[in-house]
Amino acid sequence: MKLKSSYIVVAVLSVIAIAFPAFLGAYPLNVARSIMTYMALAISWDMLLRSGQISFGIAGLFGLGSYASALAVLRGGMDPMLSIVFAAAFAGVMAYALGFAILRLRSMYFSITTLALMEIFRIVMHNLHDFSGGPEGVVLPSVIFKGASPALYWLCLAGLFLTIGVSWFFEKSKMHLALTAIRNDETSARSSGVNIFNYLLIAFVITSVLQGMMGAIQVQSYGFTTPDTAFDANFTLLPLAMALLGGIHSTIGPMAGAVLLGVASEWLKLKIPYGHLVVYGIIIILVILFMPQGLFGLARKARRERSKAGASHE
C-alpha cells in the first residue's frame, strides 16, 4: 500500500517536472537547469558517500566530462548528443583506472587525493594550449538545440532523472546493503563476505559517469568552457553543502538541499544586489547548526515524534 502511493507521488512529480516548460518562462527554466545540475551532482556525490568515502573530486569529473564532450564535438566532429554519452563513458573509464589506486585510501586521504586529481585535470587542460584551448578555453560553433529553453531544460531533466533513477536503484538493491555495511564497519563487512573493493569501484565509476554526463550537458547547453569554469571549486563545494543541508544518505535529501540553496541564491540576489552572499553563507551556517541531520532528517525526526505522540494518545 505504502509503496504504491509513493509511486503515484513520484509519477505525479515527474509529470509536473516534465510539464514545467508549458507554464514557466525562459528565466525560471534557466534557473531550474542550474539547480538540477547541482542536484544531480549532489545526489551522485551522496551515492558514493553511502559507502563512507567522501569525494572532493566532483568538479574534476564534471570538468572532465565538459572537456571530453566539447573536444569530441570540436576536434572529432562528433554529434553533440552522442558526445554527452561519450563524455560520460570517458569519465567512467578514467574513474575505473584511477579507482584501482585511490579507492584503497580512506577518510581524509581519499578526499585530498580526489581534490588533487581535480587540480591535475585542470592544470593539464590549462596547459595543453593547442588541444584544449588553454586558459581561454573552447567555444563550440553552436549551442545544442539552438539554445531553445524547453529543449535545454528537458535535456538537463533527463540527466537528473537518470541520476535519481540510479540512486534509487542503489537504495533498493544489494548495493545499498553492501555500501552501508562498508560504511558502518569495514572489517565486519569484509568478514561477512562483501567484496568491498568491487562495490566501491562500481559506485565510484557509476557516480563518475553521472558527474561527467552532467558536465557534458552543461557544456553543450552553454556552448563554451574554460578550465576555470569547468573545474570551478563550487561544483564540489555546493553539491556537498546541498546534500548535507538536505540530509545525506538518501536521494530526497540532496534534492531538497539543492532546491533550498539554489532558490535561495537566486532569490537573495534579486532582493539584495550588493551583499547577498553574506546572507547565503549565514543560511548555510544556521541550517547546519539547527538541523544537523538536514531538512530531511528534521522531517524524519518530527514524524517519528508525532507518531510516538499519536501512539501514546491511543
Binding site: S6, I252, F296
Partner: peptide, 12 residues
Amino acid sequence: MKKALLVIMIIA
C-alpha cells in the same frame, strides 16, 4: 508517502 508530500511542499 508523507516524506514525499513534505518534499513537494518544500519545492512548491
